[in-house]
Simulated scan of single mutants.
Amino acid sequence: MKAISIIGPKNSGKTTLGLQLAEALKDMGQTVAAAKFSHHGFDWQDADTTEYAKVCDTVAGLGPSETFVRWDKHNFFPDLFPLLSADVLIVEGGKTIGLTPRVLCLNGDLKDGTDWLEPDLAIATWGEHTLASIPAFDSVEELAKLVMNKAFLLPGLDCSTCGRENCKGLARDIVTGKVGPEACLAMHNSIKVDINGASIGMKPFVENIIAASVREMLRTLKGYAPGKATISLDV
């Protein structure tokens, strides 16, 4: 699953851009999920998530005291990945989450500057303001093409096996072109686990335990031979 975040100040048009981008991606034949962060919770008449639901295949909301698709408690963003099975995930808000590249929505008053938007994670800007080092877009169709080429989603394990302190550090290096998404060793190892089409990352320590256990059990089966094994499991 590819993912992109839309980050910007309050009332900068993030939802409008998210809806337009979702429609453009759907026109390209992609399935689209949306996740919206809110600092104030949801009143279940929330206009933004309602509008996303009209366009997207799946919609999730993450607030300070609840999460939906739906738990009556707070959950972490990566917990939702298996439930948001789609080709592309559009994330609105969540400026502290560094698991995806981001589009900066830069309309209105930027009195607080742009550093808090972490532009080193941005692949594009949208709106009346621009940043010299980041490509500016005014065509949703062209932005959708960029998303299909540049979007990625890291697992949020912060395991440091890639050599960076956390996933956000790796995301920065992917955005700047220093490495590709395959530098995430938690997602590119000897075991591939998909839940409802969403890849699940695992730390090398966990990978080694699972791999060793499965290999030893497979060796006891008739018909066993060394090679690449494919296991399908309902969970």
Rank of each mutant, 00 (worst) to 15 (best):
G227W: 09
L221F: 11
E51F: 00
H40D: 14
A34I: 06
D120E: 13
A132L: 08
L157F: 14
T49I: 08
G18M: 06
A3G: 13
F81E: 06
R70T: 11
D87W: 04
L117F: 09
L110R: 08
L83H: 15
P64S: 08
W116Q: 06
V179P: 05
W126P: 01
D72S: 13
A122Y: 04
A171T: 03
G8V: 01
S85Y: 09
T16F: 10
G61I: 00
S85A: 15
A53P: 00
A136D: 07
T96D: 15
T125L: 10
E92P: 06
M202R: 10
T114G: 05
G29N: 08
K2V: 02
C167F: 03
D43E: 14
V235N: 13
T161C: 14
L233A: 15
C105G: 01
W116D: 05
K95Y: 11
T125R: 07
Y52W: 10
A3E: 09
Y224R: 10
T161L: 01
I4Q: 03
S190A: 15
T220A: 12
L106F: 09
L62Y: 03
I90A: 04
I231L: 15
E66K: 13
I6R: 05
T130H: 14
E66W: 02
I7W: 03
K150M: 02
P119G: 02
R219L: 11
N75E: 15
G61N: 05
Q20V: 00
A183V: 01
G93M: 05
S12G: 06
I134K: 01
D87V: 04
A3T: 01
H188T: 08
A22H: 02
K203P: 05
K228G: 08
C159K: 13
P82N: 13
L106Y: 05
L170G: 02
L146C: 09
W44I: 07
A132T: 07
M217T: 09
A3K: 04
T96F: 06
R164I: 00
C162T: 03
T16N: 09
T114C: 14
N166F: 07
A211G: 11
L21N: 02
E142I: 11
L117P: 02
T67F: 11
W44T: 13
A198M: 14
K145T: 14
E66L: 10
R164A: 01
M217K: 11
D112Q: 11
A22Y: 00
D27Y: 05
L131H: 11
C105R: 04
P226Q: 12
L221W: 08
S12H: 05
A132N: 09
N166Q: 12
A86I: 04
I174E: 02
D48Q: 03
E23R: 13
T176F: 00
